[in-house]
Design a protein around this nucleic acid. Sequence first.
DNA 1: AGCTATCGGATAGTCCGACTGTCTATGAGA
DNA 2: TCTCATAGACAGTCGGACTATCCGATAGCT
Lengths: 212, 212
Amino acid sequence: MRISELSRLSGVSVASIKYYIREGVLAAGESDGPNRATYGGDHLARLRLIRGLVDSAGVSIAGVKRIAGALDAGIPVNEAFGVAQSAVPLVGATDGTEPSAHATDAIRDVIHPHAVGHPAAASAARALDTFEAAGEPISAAWLERYAEAAAIVARADFDELERRPDPAAQARIVAVGTALGDVVFQSLRRIAQATEGERRFPSPPPASPPAV
Amino acid sequence: MRISELSRLSGVSVASIKYYIREGVLAAGESDGPNRATYGGDHLARLRLIRGLVDSAGVSIAGVKRIAGALDAGIPVNEAFGVAQSAVPLVGATDGTEPSAHATDAIRDVIHPHAVGHPAAASAARALDTFEAAGEPISAAWLERYAEAAAIVARADFDELERRPDPAAQARIVAVGTALGDVVFQSLRRIAQATEGERRFPSPPPASPPAV
DNA sequence: AGCTATCGGATAGTCCGACTGTCTATGAGA
DNA sequence: TCTCATAGACAGTCGGACTATCCGATAGCT
């Protein structure tokens, strides 16, 4: 197919497709001459993946490039984790400020010892500091429940991974699942909050759902 | 204190402080004359909150303004949820594309019936569609575990809320906890993945932690 | 009283990411 | 032959978050 048809089928403007090709996120069409190139189903699929990661998970174009590059290169699973986490920088991975000692301790209390130096531990600790900056420090019990939930999610992630026999498929699910899993969980958390709120404080009239 | 001292204590440049005042995120100092104003501890605390929400949780200045405004106005708890969710738009709340029917069904299967129309349900469904665009649809079991984890987190959130007797404190924790809870969970998920990975696939040499 | 460093306030400029628009040469199809 | 879509290059736009410059005034020192 030609670029205009690819644009029509994907809902992405021709200009944006060209931009993605320029940025190396999408392969160029197979050239049939100086001003003619052919695109196939692979291009359409990749385009849907790009739009999905960008729109649905908020991944940057540079991040999509890393993820897509990993898929193309067929990297091993253990590297896929690194790619996924570099492509989707943890919100607030600005390591400018050091977290407070007691926030760091609070995090250490709920994670496995070998993960104490993990960059995400500092992110979590800084978030705890921000709770305090707002005048509302959270309890250890709250944090423990979060860690428990995170463990459930991580086990589900690995079970899903082991469900796939093919190493390439495993790498794919890791590369893509890190970003998308965050979104799925955030969404389900919003929904669960609404459900739990309704359970604890029933509203007589039909509740108006908050605008997200 | 004067603006330069506020800048020094907070680590935020004078120019940025002025910008925050212009944007209405931070109150202006108390004017002592045409070119003299005094700032107090409240300003410093607010500045720390702003930097925390921006750096740690990736909230936009406009979002911080809504959250901070809610704190100042002393809004009721049920409204605080709406404020928090509008201030921290769910990644991928671009309602341009409709999720597929079977993704919508998959989400419906794991949430409470009254939440089916919730905007976050569409976000979650779109994320499932993106898994498929990557060629790796996820299993119902995976989604169920996520929903279970989300329920645990939501209960922890409400327990933490009910721990506070003061309605103003409840509103504060809601306004701030939505954004920060996402970050804490994401961080703990990364850590739990590393831990679970180590448990299932032990690495003989000390594992190199992935760069976040 | 004179001087100067700093302050508050306003306005304009910068930087970055993600596009979007314009232009040119070319060649396929009517 | 003529028109029109295309590939490819490059400049322009837009929004968000600052950052730099300028100006008038005055606190505080001499």
